[in-house]
Design a protein around this nucleic acid. Sequence first.
RNA 1: GCACCCAUAGCUCAGCUGGAUAGAGCGUUGCCCUCCGAAGGCAAAGGUCGCACGUUCGAAUCGUGCUGGGUGCGCCA
Length: 581
Amino acid sequence: MNLFNDIRALVLQQLTALQGQGQLPAGLEFGAVAVEPPRDDAHGDMATNAAMVLAKPAGMAPRAIAEALAARLMLDPRVALAEVAGPGFLNLTLRPVVWQGVVAGAVALGADYGRSDLGRGARVNVEFVSANPTGPMHVGHVRGAVFGDALARLLAFTGHRVTREYYINDGGAQVDVLARSAYERYREAHGLSPEIAEGLYPGDYLVPVGQALREKYGDNLLDQGEQVWLAEVRDFATDAMMVMIRADLALLGVQMDVYSSEKALYGTGKIEAALAALEALGLIYVGVLEPPKGKTPEDWEPREQTLFRSTLYGDDVDRPVRKSDGGWTYFAPDIAYHYDKVQRGFDALINVFGADHGGYVKRLKAVVSALSQGRVPVDIKLMQLVKLWKGGQPFKMSKRAGTFVTLRDVIELVGPDVTRFVMLTRKNDAALDFDFDKVVEQSKDNPVFYVQYANARINSVLRKAAEAGIAVADADLMAANLKRLQHPAELEVARKIAEWPRLVEIAAKSNEPHRIAFYLYEIASDFHGLWNRGNDDPALRFVQEGDPATSAAKIALARAVGVVISAGLGILGVTPVEEMH
RNA sequence: GCACCCAUAGCUCAGCUGGAUAGAGCGUUGCCCUCCGAAGGCAAAGGUCGCACGUUCGAAUCGUGCUGGGUGCGCCA
């Protein structure tokens, strides 16, 4: 159910009819015809650009098309007024019955209102978080985690089959560092003083890992060389880190469908196979790169390397897949990993990365494009930084000192719902301020509170109505005589409800869950506005003393707003509250 | 030096993949409320959409070139 699609269908139907009558030439392409809410309320409820986009191909004046179309649209019972404006806009004013129908439809569909089959069952892989398994998740990871999960929910809501996936970087040098750090804690568990050398991970989250190592290995690993224990300790420690990370994600309400391991790609021939596929396309060669411009590394010297020809796809330089010591670069297993995703049959890939991975985008897109013969699109969302504030001061974290703000810290301070909502109040490519004081403030300046408060008020209406003996189950509200909803202020709210399915589709098409958060703020604002008018004008209150029929209609409107807020919060992964405390 | 991202009201930011007179919150100013339909309400002022060309019926939105800020730039992940 999407009113804008309905009206667009009506416009197209009438355009076709005009062609049938010879008032419009045949063979016109209607793809560019749009039906949208106008910015200015004075321009009616909906506007179509049909006349303007068709004027040129039809060889007619836009106003002539608009007038012919207007005459036909006026015959539809939903249309109260169709008037030509400006350069050829056609503004439509719809009858109240349309808005009453929106309310009824929203209540009837409940949690499914706004759901669409936009994706037509396409299989989409959303890879996000993918934090290195070397420690607990910190606040820098939270935004990507929330974004990826909300995006996954949004896509699922719009008819995509979504897989949430985490790529574990357990194959590089950083997990060796983890192993050495854990080994020191293992020594510590034996009463020896740990030697946390420069470059090792100093965090005390490894203390229990050291103890667990002691329980498992006793003193067998003490005073042994790395060659004895490194591999085992590494596996043990990364497993422990992943347990911790999963627990952190669970605190946020994030559940991955698939965890893929980088390490598991080594020795399976998958990396070799992926590179062979690229080589067959002529995209792999051995060559020498130019020194990087700007800042030349001091130890730079020309070396022959195995390179991927990413410059063919607009990258600055070709990218090495092998180190000079013959080992794979990080890029090589990542190529195999993305080849694997393509082979698993996904129709689209989405990667959520930190903004510092911007330089990686082109080569990754190039690889997927090449390995899927252009079949699988990749959208890479780069998450900008989160700046923390507390008490009016920037809240600094120092990775070097091992004092960083963990995901757990944030959740304990403000809870998962506030965290999730606030992280989604900015588009992904803009930096975000997260102020620990402001996000828990109970005022209209705080969007989380404002939206939750609207929902709480709606629940309060339902409770009070039930106490007054009015039947407020959805089935009862659907049966209400919605013709009693006539006041412009009420129809205005219904209009906002009508925009929900359209907004969801726009957000999904652009992979931008933040639009949901902004919409929720707007509809909450409209609802609070109506509520406030009820203070002055008793006719606008939801519960009308002694008039259960009118009450039911007004309560249905409130319930419809509640349906949308619940659905929207559901996409953001935020629990709607029923009462404020 | 090159690539990518950003630039909109005093501040923080939206802006419907090209629509009409560019919006919201904060802040400012003025009025109202402070009778739990509590955790404020109404209204006003405030703009060269970084700059300049271009594309077209029409540009904050698309293209090119600048300016300013952020990120990244062989054998890290």
